[in-house]
Design a binder for these strands. Structure first.
Lengths: 119, 119
DNA sequence: CCTAGACCTAAAGCGCACTCGAGGACTTAA
DNA sequence: TTAAGTCCTCGAGTGCGCTTTAGGTCTAGG
Protein backbone atom coordinates (compact mmCIF):
# COMPACT_ATOMS: atom_id res chain seq x y z
CA UNK A 1 0.00 0.00 0.00
CA UNK A 2 1.49 3.27 -1.12
CA UNK A 3 0.23 6.82 -1.41
CA UNK A 4 0.42 9.56 -3.98
CA UNK A 5 2.15 12.76 -3.02
CA UNK A 6 -1.10 14.62 -2.43
CA UNK A 7 -2.18 12.01 0.12
CA UNK A 8 1.23 11.97 1.73
CA UNK A 9 1.16 15.74 2.04
CA UNK A 10 -2.30 15.65 3.56
CA UNK A 11 -1.36 12.98 6.08
CA UNK A 12 1.87 14.71 7.03
CA UNK A 13 0.23 18.09 7.29
CA UNK A 14 2.73 19.76 4.97
CA UNK A 15 2.55 20.91 1.37
CA UNK A 16 3.46 18.96 -1.73
CA UNK A 17 6.08 21.60 -2.43
CA UNK A 18 7.62 21.02 0.96
CA UNK A 19 7.81 17.29 0.26
CA UNK A 20 9.60 18.06 -3.02
CA UNK A 21 11.88 20.42 -1.15
CA UNK A 22 12.74 17.89 1.55
CA UNK A 23 13.55 15.36 -1.10
CA UNK A 24 15.76 17.82 -2.96
CA UNK A 25 17.52 18.54 0.33
CA UNK A 26 18.30 14.87 0.78
CA UNK A 27 16.01 14.33 3.78
CA UNK A 28 13.94 11.76 2.01
CA UNK A 29 14.08 9.19 -0.75
CA UNK A 30 10.91 7.77 -2.21
CA UNK A 31 10.13 5.25 -4.90
CA UNK A 32 8.36 5.95 -8.16
CA UNK A 33 5.54 4.29 -9.97
CA UNK A 34 5.85 3.33 -13.63
CA UNK A 35 4.74 6.77 -14.76
CA UNK A 36 7.44 8.46 -12.68
CA UNK A 37 5.13 9.64 -9.91
CA UNK A 38 6.30 9.35 -6.32
CA UNK A 39 4.77 6.59 -4.21
CA UNK A 40 4.97 6.95 -0.44
CA UNK A 41 5.04 3.80 1.66
CA UNK A 42 3.86 3.84 5.23
CA UNK A 43 7.45 3.73 6.43
CA UNK A 44 8.09 6.80 4.27
CA UNK A 45 5.19 8.46 6.05
CA UNK A 46 6.60 7.44 9.40
CA UNK A 47 9.92 8.97 8.47
CA UNK A 48 8.21 12.14 7.31
CA UNK A 49 6.60 12.22 10.75
CA UNK A 50 10.04 12.20 12.32
CA UNK A 51 11.18 14.94 9.97
CA UNK A 52 8.26 17.19 10.83
CA UNK A 53 8.78 16.48 14.50
CA UNK A 54 12.40 17.56 14.26
CA UNK A 55 11.54 20.64 12.22
CA UNK A 56 8.78 21.71 14.57
CA UNK A 57 11.19 21.50 17.44
CA UNK A 58 13.53 23.82 15.59
CA UNK A 59 16.16 21.53 14.14
CA UNK A 60 17.74 23.21 11.11
CA UNK A 61 17.52 21.49 7.74
CA UNK A 62 21.27 20.88 7.57
CA UNK A 63 21.22 18.94 10.83
CA UNK A 64 18.25 16.98 9.64
CA UNK A 65 20.23 16.17 6.53
CA UNK A 66 23.10 14.85 8.62
CA UNK A 67 20.66 12.70 10.55
CA UNK A 68 18.89 11.52 7.38
CA UNK A 69 22.21 10.58 5.82
CA UNK A 70 23.04 8.44 8.85
CA UNK A 71 19.66 6.74 8.77
CA UNK A 72 20.10 5.97 5.08
CA UNK A 73 23.34 4.15 5.87
CA UNK A 74 23.66 0.97 7.92
CA UNK A 75 22.92 0.63 11.61
CA UNK A 76 26.53 0.90 12.71
CA UNK A 77 26.12 4.64 13.14
CA UNK A 78 23.33 4.47 15.68
CA UNK A 79 25.55 6.05 18.34
CA UNK A 80 25.93 9.11 16.10
CA UNK A 81 22.21 9.27 15.56
CA UNK A 82 21.68 9.11 19.30
CA UNK A 83 24.14 11.91 19.80
CA UNK A 84 22.36 14.18 17.35
CA UNK A 85 19.04 13.47 19.02
CA UNK A 86 20.43 13.98 22.51
CA UNK A 87 21.94 17.32 21.61
CA UNK A 88 18.67 18.27 20.01
CA UNK A 89 16.79 17.16 23.10
CA UNK A 90 18.87 19.52 25.22
CA UNK A 91 18.20 22.36 22.86
CA UNK A 92 14.48 21.69 22.97
CA UNK A 93 14.58 21.60 26.76
CA UNK A 94 16.45 24.91 26.84
CA UNK A 95 13.93 26.33 24.45
CA UNK A 96 11.06 25.10 26.61
CA UNK A 97 12.63 26.64 29.68
CA UNK A 98 13.14 29.98 27.96
CA UNK A 99 9.62 29.92 26.59
CA UNK A 100 8.17 29.12 30.00
CA UNK A 101 10.18 31.87 31.58
CA UNK A 102 9.15 34.44 28.97
CA UNK A 103 5.56 33.31 29.23
CA UNK A 104 5.61 34.39 32.85
CA UNK A 105 6.74 37.80 31.77
CA UNK A 106 3.87 38.04 29.30
CA UNK A 107 1.39 36.93 31.95
CA UNK A 108 2.78 39.40 34.42
CA UNK A 109 2.24 42.13 31.85
CA UNK A 110 -1.34 41.03 31.23
CA UNK A 111 -2.02 41.07 34.97
CA UNK A 112 -0.45 44.46 35.25
CA UNK A 113 -2.66 45.92 32.52
CA UNK A 114 -5.76 44.33 33.99
CA UNK A 115 -4.98 45.87 37.36
CA UNK A 116 -4.57 49.25 35.69
CA UNK A 117 -7.99 48.79 34.11
CA UNK A 118 -9.57 47.76 37.39
CA UNK A 119 -8.26 50.74 39.30
CA UNK B 1 21.05 57.93 34.27
CA UNK B 2 21.17 56.93 30.63
CA UNK B 3 23.23 54.48 28.62
CA UNK B 4 25.04 54.54 25.32
CA UNK B 5 23.89 52.10 22.69
CA UNK B 6 26.79 49.70 23.32
CA UNK B 7 25.78 49.39 26.98
CA UNK B 8 22.13 49.03 26.10
CA UNK B 9 22.96 46.28 23.64
CA UNK B 10 25.07 44.49 26.21
CA UNK B 11 22.38 44.68 28.86
CA UNK B 12 19.65 43.58 26.50
CA UNK B 13 21.73 40.76 25.09
CA UNK B 14 21.20 41.88 21.50
CA UNK B 15 23.42 43.62 18.97
CA UNK B 16 23.71 47.33 18.35
CA UNK B 17 22.52 46.66 14.83
CA UNK B 18 19.41 44.97 16.12
CA UNK B 19 18.66 47.99 18.29
CA UNK B 20 18.98 50.19 15.21
CA UNK B 21 16.74 47.83 13.35
CA UNK B 22 14.05 47.78 16.06
CA UNK B 23 14.06 51.54 16.09
CA UNK B 24 13.73 51.71 12.32
CA UNK B 25 10.83 49.30 12.57
CA UNK B 26 9.07 51.61 15.00
CA UNK B 27 9.35 49.33 18.02
CA UNK B 28 11.35 51.82 19.99
CA UNK B 29 11.95 55.53 20.32
CA UNK B 30 14.96 56.79 22.19
CA UNK B 31 16.31 60.23 23.01
CA UNK B 32 19.54 61.65 21.76
CA UNK B 33 22.40 63.41 23.42
CA UNK B 34 23.68 66.74 22.09
CA UNK B 35 26.01 65.00 19.67
CA UNK B 36 23.15 62.99 18.16
CA UNK B 37 24.01 59.72 19.88
CA UNK B 38 21.20 57.63 21.31
CA UNK B 39 20.76 57.63 25.08
CA UNK B 40 18.84 54.76 26.62
CA UNK B 41 16.97 55.41 29.86
CA UNK B 42 16.21 52.58 32.23
CA UNK B 43 12.61 52.60 31.11
CA UNK B 44 13.89 52.23 27.54
CA UNK B 45 15.83 49.21 28.73
CA UNK B 46 12.77 47.82 30.43
CA UNK B 47 10.82 48.23 27.22
CA UNK B 48 13.59 46.53 25.27
CA UNK B 49 13.26 43.70 27.76
CA UNK B 50 9.62 43.36 26.84
CA UNK B 51 10.48 43.46 23.15
CA UNK B 52 13.05 40.68 23.46
CA UNK B 53 10.62 38.68 25.56
CA UNK B 54 7.97 38.96 22.87
CA UNK B 55 10.45 38.16 20.11
CA UNK B 56 11.85 35.14 21.92
CA UNK B 57 8.35 33.81 22.29
CA UNK B 58 7.88 34.09 18.56
CA UNK B 59 5.84 37.25 18.14
CA UNK B 60 6.43 38.62 14.63
CA UNK B 61 7.87 42.10 14.25
CA UNK B 62 4.69 43.50 12.73
CA UNK B 63 2.63 42.47 15.74
CA UNK B 64 5.25 43.94 18.01
CA UNK B 65 4.94 47.13 16.02
CA UNK B 66 1.18 47.21 16.55
CA UNK B 67 1.76 46.72 20.25
CA UNK B 68 4.50 49.34 20.38
CA UNK B 69 2.29 51.84 18.59
CA UNK B 70 -0.42 51.32 21.20
CA UNK B 71 2.04 51.74 24.05
CA UNK B 72 3.30 54.96 22.51
CA UNK B 73 -0.23 56.37 22.57
CA UNK B 74 -2.28 57.12 25.66
CA UNK B 75 -3.57 54.58 28.13
CA UNK B 76 -7.08 54.44 26.68
CA UNK B 77 -6.05 51.54 24.47
CA UNK B 78 -5.01 49.23 27.28
CA UNK B 79 -7.80 46.78 26.41
CA UNK B 80 -6.28 46.39 22.95
CA UNK B 81 -2.87 45.82 24.42
CA UNK B 82 -4.33 43.17 26.69
CA UNK B 83 -5.95 41.51 23.73
CA UNK B 84 -2.70 41.33 21.80
CA UNK B 85 -0.93 39.86 24.80
CA UNK B 86 -3.70 37.37 25.51
CA UNK B 87 -3.70 36.11 21.95
CA UNK B 88 0.05 35.87 22.11
CA UNK B 89 -0.18 34.00 25.39
CA UNK B 90 -2.43 31.41 23.76
CA UNK B 91 -0.01 31.02 20.91
CA UNK B 92 2.87 30.52 23.29
CA UNK B 93 0.88 27.94 25.21
CA UNK B 94 0.07 26.11 21.99
CA UNK B 95 3.70 26.27 21.04
CA UNK B 96 4.72 24.89 24.42
CA UNK B 97 2.25 22.06 24.10
CA UNK B 98 3.46 21.17 20.62
CA UNK B 99 7.06 21.36 21.72
CA UNK B 100 6.39 19.14 24.72
CA UNK B 101 4.56 16.66 22.56
CA UNK B 102 7.30 16.55 19.95
CA UNK B 103 9.91 16.28 22.65
CA UNK B 104 8.30 13.01 23.70
CA UNK B 105 8.69 11.76 20.18
CA UNK B 106 12.37 12.66 20.19
CA UNK B 107 12.85 10.96 23.54
CA UNK B 108 11.02 7.90 22.34
CA UNK B 109 13.38 7.75 19.39
CA UNK B 110 16.43 8.06 21.64
CA UNK B 111 15.13 5.25 23.82
CA UNK B 112 14.45 3.15 20.78
CA UNK B 113 17.99 3.57 19.48
CA UNK B 114 19.46 2.86 22.89
CA UNK B 115 17.50 -0.34 23.09
CA UNK B 116 18.75 -1.33 19.68
CA UNK B 117 22.30 -0.73 20.89
CA UNK B 118 21.73 -2.73 24.06
CA UNK B 119 20.33 -5.73 22.26
C1' DC C 1 48.05 67.71 15.00
C1' DC C 2 46.72 63.20 14.37
C1' DT C 3 44.82 58.95 15.39
C1' DA C 4 41.62 55.78 17.55
C1' DG C 5 37.20 54.72 18.95
C1' DA C 6 32.28 55.17 19.49
C1' DC C 7 28.64 56.62 17.15
C1' DC C 8 25.70 58.10 13.04
C1' DT C 9 22.74 57.09 8.37
C1' DA C 10 21.09 54.75 4.36
C1' DA C 11 21.14 51.02 1.61
C1' DA C 12 22.37 46.54 0.30
C1' DG C 13 23.13 41.73 1.50
C1' DC C 14 22.35 37.26 3.74
C1' DG C 15 20.54 32.71 5.40
C1' DC C 16 16.80 30.11 6.06
C1' DA C 17 12.83 27.54 4.86
C1' DC C 18 9.91 27.33 2.13
C1' DT C 19 6.71 28.63 -2.04
C1' DC C 20 5.47 29.52 -6.59
C1' DG C 21 5.44 29.44 -11.65
C1' DA C 22 6.25 27.84 -16.25
C1' DG C 23 6.07 24.35 -19.31
C1' DG C 24 5.25 19.64 -20.13
C1' DA C 25 3.71 14.49 -19.70
C1' DC C 26 0.23 11.15 -18.90
C1' DT C 27 -4.47 9.37 -17.65
C1' DT C 28 -9.21 9.28 -17.28
C1' DA C 29 -14.09 10.70 -18.12
C1' DA C 30 -17.53 13.07 -20.94
C1' DT D 1 -10.93 14.31 -28.93
C1' DT D 2 -10.70 17.32 -25.88
C1' DA D 3 -10.80 18.95 -21.33
C1' DA D 4 -9.68 18.27 -16.48
C1' DG D 5 -6.80 16.58 -13.08
C1' DT D 6 -2.54 14.97 -11.05
C1' DC D 7 1.89 14.64 -11.39
C1' DC D 8 6.75 15.89 -13.08
C1' DT D 9 11.30 19.19 -13.21
C1' DC D 10 13.91 23.23 -12.81
C1' DG D 11 14.62 27.64 -11.51
C1' DA D 12 13.21 31.79 -9.62
C1' DG D 13 10.75 34.34 -5.99
C1' DT D 14 9.24 35.46 -1.17
C1' DG D 15 9.17 36.91 3.69
C1' DC D 16 11.41 37.27 7.75
C1' DG D 17 14.76 38.95 10.85
C1' DC D 18 18.50 40.45 11.13
C1' DT D 19 23.53 41.81 9.58
C1' DT D 20 26.94 44.06 6.99
C1' DT D 21 28.98 47.72 4.43
C1' DA D 22 30.29 52.26 3.14
C1' DG D 23 31.07 56.68 4.11
C1' DG D 24 30.88 60.17 7.47
C1' DT D 25 30.93 63.05 12.26
C1' DC D 26 32.52 64.00 16.76
C1' DT D 27 35.50 63.64 20.79
C1' DA D 28 39.32 62.36 23.73
C1' DG D 29 44.20 60.97 24.33
C1' DG D 30 49.08 61.09 23.17
Amino acid sequence: MTFAISDAAKQAGISIHTLHYYEREGLLQVGRSSNGHRRYSSSDLEWIGILTCLRQTGMPIRTMRRFATLVQQDSSNIPERIEILKIHRLEVLANLAALTHNLEHVEYKIDYYEKVLAS
